[in-house]
Computed example of a mutant assay.
Amino acid sequence: MSVPTLNGQVIGRAHYATRALLERLLAPSGTTFQQSLALNAVADEGGTADREQVLARLTAGLKTDRAAALSVLAELTDAGLLAPSPDAADGVALTPAGRGRQAGIRADVADLTARLYGGLPPEDLAAAARVLTALTARADAELAG
C-alpha cells in the first residue's frame, strides 16, 4: 500500500474514525463529546475553574458560539456534574459525581489512546503533532482573519 499524501481528507478520516470511537466510549455514561471537553477543562484546573475560561476553551476548541458553550455548561449543571464554585463568584466546580464521571472517561480515553497510538514510532508521533499543530494554527488564523 502506498503512503497517502497528507491533506484534509486524510486528516478528516483520522479525525472522524477516532471521534466515532470516542463517541462510542462516551455513550454508556450519557456524556456528549462537548460535555466531556467541558469536564476536562474544569478538571485540568484542579476541579474548579473560571466559567469564562471554560467557555473560551469550548468556543475555541469546538469552533462554536457562546450560546452553544453555555448550553453545555447548563446540561452538566442540570445533570449534577458541575455546580457553581463555592470559592469563586464566577467559577464552576466538578461535583463528586462530575469528578467520578470525568475520571472514568479520562481512564477510558487513556486505554483507547494506548491502543491507537501504541507501537507507532515516537519520532513519527512527534512529527505528526508538529504538523497538525501548525495546520491548526494556520486554520485558526484564517478563521480569525
Rank of each mutant, 00 (worst) to 15 (best):
A20M: 10
D65L: 08
D90G: 05
T133Y: 01
L55G: 00
Q9I: 14
R13F: 13
A38W: 05
T136P: 05
P96L: 09
A128V: 03
A38K: 03
L6P: 00
S71M: 11
E142K: 12
R66M: 04
H15Q: 15
A129C: 05
G61W: 04
R115H: 11
R99G: 09
T59L: 00
G119E: 04
G12W: 12
P122V: 09
G46A: 05
P28I: 06
A103F: 09
L21C: 12
A41Y: 05
N7Q: 11
V10L: 15
G47R: 06
R101E: 10
I105K: 03
D108W: 04
R19W: 13
V54G: 01
V92F: 00
S29H: 07
F33A: 06
R19D: 13
A83P: 02
G12N: 15
G104C: 04
T113G: 07
L62H: 04
L21A: 15
A126K: 07
L132N: 03
L22Q: 12
Q35A: 11
A17L: 14
R57C: 01
L120A: 09
D108A: 15
A103L: 10
T32D: 02
L58E: 02
A38L: 02
N7D: 15
A134T: 15
V42D: 01
S36Y: 08
L26A: 05
E45W: 07
A141W: 05
A60H: 12
R51T: 10
A139C: 06
S2G: 13
A103M: 09
G80L: 06
V42T: 05
L143N: 13
L22H: 06
A110S: 12
L132W: 02
A67E: 14
L132F: 04
L116I: 15
L70M: 13
Y117R: 09
M1S: 15
N40A: 11
E23S: 11
L73T: 00
A49H: 01
L26F: 07
T59P: 00
A27M: 09
A114C: 05
R101A: 10
T95M: 04
E142W: 06
P84N: 03
P96G: 07
S29K: 06
G91I: 06
D78R: 14
E142Y: 09
A103P: 09
L81V: 02
Q34V: 08
T48N: 05
A68P: 01
S2H: 12
L37Q: 11
G119F: 04
P84K: 08
R66Q: 09
D65A: 07
L55R: 05
Q35C: 05
V3S: 15
G98R: 01
D111K: 12
T18N: 14
A56M: 08
L39I: 10
A74K: 15
A79E: 06
T59R: 00
A128I: 04
A41I: 07
P121V: 01
N7M: 13
A134I: 10
L116A: 11
L112S: 01
L37R: 11
L73F: 06
A43Q: 08
G80D: 04
A127P: 02
G119D: 00
P28T: 08
L73K: 01
L135S: 03
L73C: 02
G91D: 00
Q102G: 03
K63G: 08
A83E: 13
G30I: 04
A129N: 08
